[in-house]
Design a protein around this nucleic acid. Sequence first.
DNA 1: CCTGGGATACTTGTATACTAGGAGCGTGCA
DNA 2: TGCACGCTCCTAGTATACAAGTATCCCAGG
Lengths: 230, 230
Amino acid sequence: MIPLDRYQRDKGKPTRVQVYAALRDAIVRGELEPGQQLSENSLAGRIGVSRTPIREAIGRLREDRLVETVPQLGTFVARVNPTAIGDAQFIRESLECAAIRLSAQVAKEEDVAELEENLQGQDRARAAGDLDSFYLLDDSFHHALCDLSGHLSVWIVSERAKAHLNRIRRLSLGMPNYLDEMISEHRLVLDAVAANDPDLAERHLREHLRTVLREVPRMRAEHPDYFEGP
Amino acid sequence: MIPLDRYQRDKGKPTRVQVYAALRDAIVRGELEPGQQLSENSLAGRIGVSRTPIREAIGRLREDRLVETVPQLGTFVARVNPTAIGDAQFIRESLECAAIRLSAQVAKEEDVAELEENLQGQDRARAAGDLDSFYLLDDSFHHALCDLSGHLSVWIVSERAKAHLNRIRRLSLGMPNYLDEMISEHRLVLDAVAANDPDLAERHLREHLRTVLREVPRMRAEHPDYFEGP
DNA sequence: CCTGGGATACTTGTATACTAGGAGCGTGCA
DNA sequence: TGCACGCTCCTAGTATACAAGTATCCCAGG
């Protein structure tokens, strides 16, 4: 259930970081369902380490608001919070749009070539219907665009802040025509960056990011138990 | 040396959160100097709790990049990293400027009145030469402006991301005329918000935030041991 | 049949014991 | 004198033991 092996190739005892990555991924991918309880003891037993590293991993998840823990009672996978999604979207949009303005100004041919290759990979993943690969390529695409700005820590901050948003993103991939839309929007963004046009790049990126957000109501209708509150 | 009592009024055993807040404050205020070693054992003994809550607090500080730990060797207060400052400034600027655009659109009279009161407090703190109070009021001012946007988690993310920047901010307060400059810039921002002018508010805020950044070279000249690498 | 109380089996939080590894110093040998 | 080896102490990392609190189930009693 917890895809630890994806983050732990060396087969030694997993570290807290690997435990964190595995749990986070399992939550974002929906393998651990909202509301489900995460027992430190059973996780420790199943993974084969003591409670200490498990606790540290859960502590990070708590800061990401991916889990909620009630003292002396239990730790539970958080439901998706619509307010948190809105906030995450705002943060993501602010950071990525600001970054891409710089990126568009400094992008060299080789940078564009690399992004181009990624984009073709997205096309292949779509043709193969491989949602997992597409999700990873999508992330790499935005990550690379962000890093081009030179502010490497922006992606790190953004990544942690948009955990709730990622859960929606992951869910949305199954919608019909959604991948086509994503790819053609990525194309527009990349072309603007290649043309070193910050204004156009920002506009297309902002539009693209909001496409994701527009899926929220549909996701909520399809997976009502994923969401919390009003 | 560690002002734990500032975060722990009830005199019970301090929690990990209180330990984190106290250590973070001590580092930002410069009471714990860059390069200084933080021993989990001695901290635990001095504060009167076991290593476990200390470790969790140090774990968060590590994520903030305020400390660096070398396994089996020790944990050390990080030196201020110029790259980290640049990144923090970029993140802060992106988030706060985006937020204030919304804030300026929705600000009501009572919001402005509250900010006005804060601003007068800043004036009193300047007159009294009370840097600590000024720093707190400055933070509240930006915090309140940010929250007006409705995206409450923006401040939380920004706060954690700009830890390195805060260390500079705190150092800069001693510069002559610096407080006057801060206050008059706050005035410009607040007036633009009161006038519900997003563009003007953003422009003044961006200008204000960069004033802080301009102090970095001077701080580096005065406290060379605070900084790392080129 | 319904309700109340208590044992019990969980939970997280904290404290402590143990492990592995690096730093530094002192001693002994060349 | 200088270098090298080894011992000792300290570190973080991990495992385990203990404490405190909550939900649940079962049984007794009305």
